[in-house]
């Protein structure tokens, strides 16, 4: 017997909160995959720490989504009993870890965005989201500093590290545009002062990322084609495998308490 997926009633606020929760959980899960396998013990610690921050953010956001939905779901049901088409995270955060350069460039792209985004959300008219934003912003500011320092070290390190860092930038660039897109469901929340408008953050994000790239002697791609789909549940093939691992226990033992 396996536990079936739940159906979530995705009002705009529930959908909005789930999208952010899924971003945090999936990226936290990816970072946690490094634990015990990082290039040095200090990075085992740092990557686990950032994974913990993100999983903590996800838990608060899922808890709030469940409360807003009001159908008796909780953080675990939302995390463990939705299938790949119901997941709403950005394609960027589900990218496999790859080498350390890929992980750090992914982290730079996301943290540079998340730091700005949560800073904006601190002014949300929704008090719960504003409180979650205040905590998340502090964490993401550190993640950004950590990732920036590494990308600079790798880009301006050895020939090999430069080549790997440039390859990571080239591979991941097309997944950055989705962070700044807004659909009809979110437009209403932006107009109501509940959500931050991510399109407004693009210039500052570009300036942060360009500065790091310059320091790192890396070149940002000219190709401006951006992949979309994560927010609507159209994911890469990688997410299903991640979820089958993440959800294994809850799916295999329906209704058990752990």
């Amino acid at each position: 017997m396996t536990a079936p997926s739940i159906t979530v009633s995705e009002t705009p606020l529930v959908l909005y909160t789930l999208r952010r929760a899924d971003d945090a959980l999936i990226l936290g899960h990816r970072l946690s995959e490094w634990c015990g396998h990082a290039p040095m013990l200090e990075e085992d610690m740092a990557l686990s720490n950032m994974a913990l921050d993100l999983i903590g953010q996800a838990r608060e956001l899922y808890g709030y989504a469940a409360k807003v939905e009001g159908r008796g779901h909780d953080e675990d049901k939302l995390a463990y009993l939705r299938d790949v088409r119901q997941y709403r995270n950005l394609l960027l955060v589900e990218r496999p870890n790859g080498d350390f350069a890929h992980t750090m460039v992914r982290q730079l792209f996301y943290a540079a965005f998340a730091d700005l985004y949560w800073r904006g959300m601190m002014g949300s008219t929704d008090a719960t989201l504003a409180a979650i934003a205040a905590k998340s912003e502090k964490e993401c500011a550190y993640h950004l500093r950590h990732a920036s320092e590494w990308v600079i070290r790798l880009g301006d390190g050895t020939d090999e590290s430069h080549r790997r860092a440039q390859a990571a930038v080239d591979d991941l660039w097309a997944y950055t545009g989705e962070m700044f897109s807004v659909d009809g469901s979110e437009r209403g929340l932006i107009d109501a002062g509940i959500a931050t408008d991510p399109t407004m953050l693009l210039p500052e994000w570009l300036s942060i990322v360009s500065h790091v790239a310059r320091e790192a002697t890396l070149v940002l791609p000219e190709n401006d084609w951006m992949q979309q789909g994560g927010r609507d549940g159209r994911h890469s093939e990688h997410l299903g495998h991640l979820l089958s691992e993440l959800q294994y226990m809850q799916r295999s033992f329906p209704g058990a308490t752990w």
Partner: peptide
């Protein structure tokens, strides 16, 4: 071994 290039870069 996989982390060697990272430590060298640092």
């Amino acid at each position: 071994a996989d982390g060697a290039w990272v430590r060298e870069a640092a």
